[in-house]
Every structure is written in structure tokens, then in C-alpha cells.
Nucleic acid binder design. Structure first.
Length: 194
DNA sequence: CTCTCGATGTTCT
DNA sequence: GAACATCGAGAGG
């Protein structure tokens, strides 16, 4: 299990370092695992794409807290997103987990996705469906939790990491839309978009 | 394979 | 009341 110190770093570093790590979810006696292949950084009140840019609210409160906690929220009336809080207490920042590559117990993930064999984890909302992640996990401590946490996986070389603008933030300022704060593993077929 | 379009509910104005 | 860090079904190539 990754320690708190891993998350207490600059958000862009954490976003890149999370690539190749193993996301683990316990469902009863079964353990779902998947390799993280795509992330996005949301950094501080100055980032107009970050939820925290509108100030601290009950919804975004977790992002203002200590690093290493899960920030789970609901969008579009039907989808959950999984983020991990980074940096220091009082500075709102998080990394969105956008996609992963199924490792163990893939059949259970497919079942959670209502039988969808393709596109099991290649999208933030799909990942949450496959892993049964919902608001009940919001605020859980990923450095101590028994239901959801992250472990070391594969080493990903810097040359294998691709940087792109973030997805789905048309409402943000131009400078924030253009920021290359989306990271994914080159040539991995599980990323959410080409 | 690609594209379009509508569902859905929480949050904030 | 509007916007929203999306997805999947269905139509067409």
C-alpha cells in the first residue's frame, strides 16, 4: 500500500507516478485489481477546471484536506469519478483516475458493468462502475483503507508517458484548457480516448 | 468502425 | 434553472 508521503508531492508528479500503479478494491472476499494507465491533474483554486476554484463547499471539502484520501463525486446524473487528494492540507488538489487495465477478477468487473465485455475500465465513470465505487467511498483514507487502496505495480519510463490537454473541461479558461495535465501510457489500448 | 443524441441528479446561482 | 471532469444505444458506412 502506498504511504501518505507518496501523495504529499506536487500534483503533476503524483499524476505521472500513479501510472503503472495497482488499484485494488475489496468486494467481500474478492480482490479486484487493475493497472492505472491514465490520469489527470486538478490543481488548486487558480485552476478554473478544478472544482475547488469555486471555493470550499461540502462537495469539494475532501480536496482541501490531507493528501491520500479518496475524492469521489457524481456528475451527469449517473456517473461517479474517482480522484485521489494530493499536496498539503489546505491546498485543494487531486488526481483523477481516468482509466485502468484489468488484472485480477476481470469477470467480476464485467459483471459489474452489466456484461459489457469491451470498455471495462477505459473511462473514469466505467472504472467506477467496474470497481463498485460510489459516494460511500468519498473521504476514505487510501493509506489505511480496507476496501480501496493503491499499491506499487510496474515501473513506467518517462519516455512512455504522454502529456495531453485534459478532457471535458470546455467551461474552463483557455490557459487551463491548454495545460498538458492529462497523462497516459503510450500505446496502451486501455486509455479512454485516442 | 464512426457519429449523434439523450439520460440523469447533485450542486451552485 | 443551468451546468456538469460521461456513457451507451442506435443509425449509418
Amino acid at each position: 500500500m502506498l504511504s501518505r508521503a507518496f501523495y504529499q508531492n506536487p500534483t503533476l508528479d503524483v499524476a505521472k507516478n500513479l501510472l503503472g500503479k495497482k488499484l485494488i478494491r475489496r468486494i467481500g472476499n474478492n480482490f479486484l485489481t487493475a493497472l492505472i494507465v491514465e490520469t489527470e491533474a486538478y490543481i488548486g483554486a487558480e485552476d478554473s477546471a478544478c472544482h475547488a476554484s469555486k471555493g470550499k463547499t461540502p462537495r469539494t471539502e475532501v480536496m482541501f484536506g490531507e493528501a491520500g484520501y479518496a475524492y469521489v463525486y457524481f456528475v451527469y446524473g449517473m456517473h461517479y469519478m474517482l480522484n485521489v487528494v494530493t499536496e498539503t492540507k489546505g491546498f485543494p488538489a487531486a488526481v483523477l483516475i481516468r482509466a485502468a487495465e484489468p488484472l485480477e477478477n476481470r469477470p467480476i468487473m464485467v459483471k459489474n458493468r452489466k456484461g459489457q465485455e469491451k470498455h471495462v475500465c477505459n473511462g473514469p465513470a466505467r472504472l467506477c462502475q467496474a470497481f463498485l465505487i460510489n459516494k460511500s467511498l468519498n473521504g476514505n483514507d487510501l493509506t489505511a483503507d480496507k476496501e480501496l487502496w493503491i499499491e506499487n505495480g510496474q515501473e513506467i519510463a518517462n519516455s512512455e508517458i504522454v502529456s495531453k490537454p485534459r478532457v471535458g473541461i470546455d467551461y474552463a479558461d483557455a490557459k487551463d484548457r491548454e495545460a498538458l495535465w492529462r497523462f497516459y501510457i503510450r500505446n496502451n489500448s486501455n486509455v479512454s480516448k485516442k
